[in-house]
Design a binder for these strands. Sequence first.
DNA 1: TATTCATGATTAATCGTTTAATCACGCAGA
DNA 2: TCTGCGTGATTAAACGATTAATCATGAATA
Lengths: 350, 350
Amino acid sequence: MNINRPLATMTAIAEALGVSAATVSNALSGKGRVSVDLAASIKAKAEEIGYVPSQAAKALRTGRSGVIGLVLPDISNPLFPQIAQAIEHAASAAGYAVLIGDSRGQIARQTEAIARLLERGVDGVIIIPRRGSRVVDIGAPVAIIDSPSTPGNTVSADHWEGGVQMGRYLASLGHRRVLLIGQSTTSNVQVDRLGGLKAGLGPDVRRETLWVERREAEIGAGQCLGLSAKVAEGFTAFAASSDLLALRVLTELQRSGIDVPRQASVSGFDDLVWSSVVTPQLTTMRQDLDLIARNAVAALGIGIGNKDTSVAAAPMAANGERIAMQLIVRQSTAAPVAVPEEIQKREESE
Amino acid sequence: MNINRPLATMTAIAEALGVSAATVSNALSGKGRVSVDLAASIKAKAEEIGYVPSQAAKALRTGRSGVIGLVLPDISNPLFPQIAQAIEHAASAAGYAVLIGDSRGQIARQTEAIARLLERGVDGVIIIPRRGSRVVDIGAPVAIIDSPSTPGNTVSADHWEGGVQMGRYLASLGHRRVLLIGQSTTSNVQVDRLGGLKAGLGPDVRRETLWVERREAEIGAGQCLGLSAKVAEGFTAFAASSDLLALRVLTELQRSGIDVPRQASVSGFDDLVWSSVVTPQLTTMRQDLDLIARNAVAALGIGIGNKDTSVAAAPMAANGERIAMQLIVRQSTAAPVAVPEEIQKREESE
DNA sequence: TATTCATGATTAATCGTTTAATCACGCAGA
DNA sequence: TCTGCGTGATTAAACGATTAATCATGAATA
């Protein structure tokens, strides 16, 4: 395009204006002492020749790359696009670029992925750890987005409180028999969400918990979870710990000829992209990912500013910010139809 | 962790062994002339002190950052996780790191996102352009993953041929009345897929095309598409241009009390994560994203090797590799039930 | 007139690698 | 003995920005 692009350096500006490179640097950064008119003409010249600072040189000199790493051990996580977008946005607002760190779904490679990022000279790392895996000290600023109940967590949605909200909402609709559905008990996030749900539903609501991973160990993966039987038992609401699970629940119920939400309500968590395209649209809890991302980046920024990287992680781990979740009511939840008498009786006698 | 980490430089190795830094560089890169035993002891020392080359210094000196940018204009694309993972893997195998470029869903910001990546000194950019947006010459190596029918496309799945496969499969099941469902006519990918579907279904199959975006302009977003009416008309198969659309179709049909696949078959494209968790599991076409990613990175590698970046894009645009798609048959498709007589008659009379 | 001081700009070193150019040295051929 | 050459290593100059230290200049003060 332009032959002078590689020449668009500070020295080039300096030579063109007959000043020293240091002056150019000072003018552009506004740090040293430069007369206003010289600074103006330097900036004009920079603009004119299309000057773009060399990140490599800056990184070499300052020891900061202006890049942070983002590690998502479970990249198949459907929330990934939204998280990545939120982090990228927050990071670029803070002047950072984001490098992808992928551990290819294997927990063991999480450390390896982090190491690769560190070799690339990232100034810090944001990690969304896979279910319960611990992050070792890596000698660099780290922000962990997991769950408030995870030790070392830096910032995350308040999954418990989100569960409470959803639980209260379902109870307020009149549901008195709710099935809580989680994928795995090793996930702090899911445990929190279901725990919150129980608390929110209150003591007057009967509930049962279904852990899909455990059930699948018996019946085989991908099999029906036997939800229509639960409806027959009198369950009127199915609260899943994630939209993915909610989707599974929704389609299984529909397949069994159960009308959602008339005969059974279904709710999820995360507000994934498809939540609003399915019929009926899914009621769910949304995380404020933008806010979470901003906090994570901010926490990192503090750490990066720290000279001593080995202790930088300590002050950050202290905050453990928890971000409120937002209830998104759509079509998959409604008040239950009148409970059949025989079930109501049995329930009372129990 | 170790105070000597910042000291783990080439010069440190050189001093420790009493040789020059140049010799260390030669030994480690295997380029210059170094005696085998000296090289061995240099490598040993490097290992010992935990030497990690400074990417910044290397980038400054060589003019190559070893980083490529990945631009996904529509980051909410549910295929993003898989694409990102594939690209990251292919890139790291080729010695590159991947920087996220996000245009926040806005087509106009695509160029802006690319510019930001370029400022970061990326050696090349992989772009998955949003529906039909053109990529301007950016004076750096670019690989475009879109559709073979897009001018400038570098590598992509053979969406048309994938459509043909799916069409043949549906026809072979015995479907004679198929509804093709796409989101937007501005997407080359979707147009290709539906075009291939038509070709694959052959002349004996009656079909109609539903463009959701167009329909929603009339009925409003998120409304029912009136698919049960189509079933009543005699349509036995619904072939969507993406899994997201297929999911919408599936749930709408189920909501209407239509049994999938007994009364209607549903198929999608992309094999997204949820395809196998819904009930019934979705029949779909899978892209070989790993192969696509490898090709894209390879194409970039060629370009990066080129000194003259302004013409580097030219030889790459020439290949336009198309990667075969793979049919994943699951539960959402089956042979149609016998067609009701009156419909069959009407069809014949038309 | 001599001293101090603020201002504005320059010098030069530095970050860690790469690489072309150079050098020292021993050995074979003339 | 002198020249030429291959081998193994060194020198030194980049790459482009940052920054502490220095310097020149003129105005204000003693």
